[in-house]
Nucleic acid binder design. Structure first.
Length: 277
DNA sequence: CCACTCCTGCGT
DNA sequence: ACGCAGGAGTGG
């Protein structure tokens, strides 16, 4: 489900409920996530206080101290929500973590993931987290002036189609299938163009377009078309604002020509033949 | 590079 | 029954 904006929305909505909370017992009902998880691995966190929630691309982590925390990747269908402890469990609830606040000990953090492409990973060394982050390029939701040049340079260095290059988390972290297509539209570039065919100016424009579509999506609390929800279980409304994603046959919002669908790397890309060159 | 894999659910 | 799905890794 979730790309950078959805993960960021989960992070923000999670923050007030977990920062300052003490973690209690972990209950793991299904260990076969992308990385197998056991209740035993949560043992070092029993009684620990969460001090922050951070994010880089689609990777999010609860911070306990300089060395320890719990990272979460939502995969395609992961949901991380805070619910009353006595709330009915949805199907595919794999991990539950008790949250003990000074004045409210009735909530728990739940990880739900039907397809189990995601993971919840307790870590006890900063190196383990840094190793994960080392696989990621600059975070698309916090691109500095230097970062946008780094992204543009990476785009120009590959012969792959620009839309596929945008999906590569080493190029820019947090862009997924929705926003890769949206970024190509905003930059007015044909998604099948080779990265190496872009001028420096076009590559920078594409990096900026990616940053812009991600930022706009955060304003709308993410894109929900099937099962993405924030930490409170609420859907996002960015789906109403997309230019091309899943709009095959519908009129381009700029020129009214029907949006087309092509398959790139076994994934759908939506685009406007007139607006994008 | 590409095809294929993990897994479940939904719409046609 | 089949194709498709917002992610990401592997092996050829």
């Amino acid at each position: 489900m979730p790309e950078g904006p959805e993960v960021e929305t989960v992070r923000r909505t999670l923050l007030p409920h977990v920062v300052g909370a003490r973690l209690g017992r972990a209950i793991v009902s299904r260990k076969a996530l992308r990385t197998p998880v056991t209740a035993r691995r949560f043992a070092p966190f029993d009684g620990a206080v969460v001090i922050d929630v951070k994010r880089h691309g689609k990777l999010m982590w609860l911070v306990v101290d300089d060395e320890r925390g719990i990272w979460v990747r939502l995969g395609m269908t992961g949901q991380l929500t805070v619910v009353p402890r006595d709330a009915q469990r949805k199907p595919h609830t794999h991990v539950r973590l008790h949250l003990v606040h000074d004045n409210n000990d009735n909530n728990e953090l739940r990880y739900v993931d039907p397809r189990r492409f995601g993971e919840v990973v307790p870590f006890t060394s900063r190196d383990a987290l840094d190793e994960q982050r080392a696989q990621l390029g600059p975070d698309g939701l916090s691109l500095s002036d230097d970062d946008r040049v780094v992204v543009a340079t990476a785009l120009r260095k590959t012969d792959r189609a620009i839309k596929e290059a945008l999906l590569d988390q080493r190029v820019i972290a947090g862009v997924g299938n929705i926003y890769a297509a949206e970024a190509c539209f905003v930059a007015r570039l044909n998604p099948e163009r080779a990265g190496s065919s872009l001028s420096t100016k076009q590559a920078l424009a594409l990096a900026d377009a990616a940053a812009a579509v991600l930022a706009t999506a955060v304003v709308h609390n993410g894109t929900s078309f099937s099962n993405y929800v924030d930490a409170m279980g609420r859907q996002g409304d960015n789906y109403a604002h997309v230019f091309v994603f899943q709009r095959e046959g519908k009129p381009c919002r700029v020129c009214a020509r029907p949006i087309e669908r092509v398959v790139q790397g076994a994934r759908s890309t939506f685009w406007c033949r007139r607006c994008q060159r």
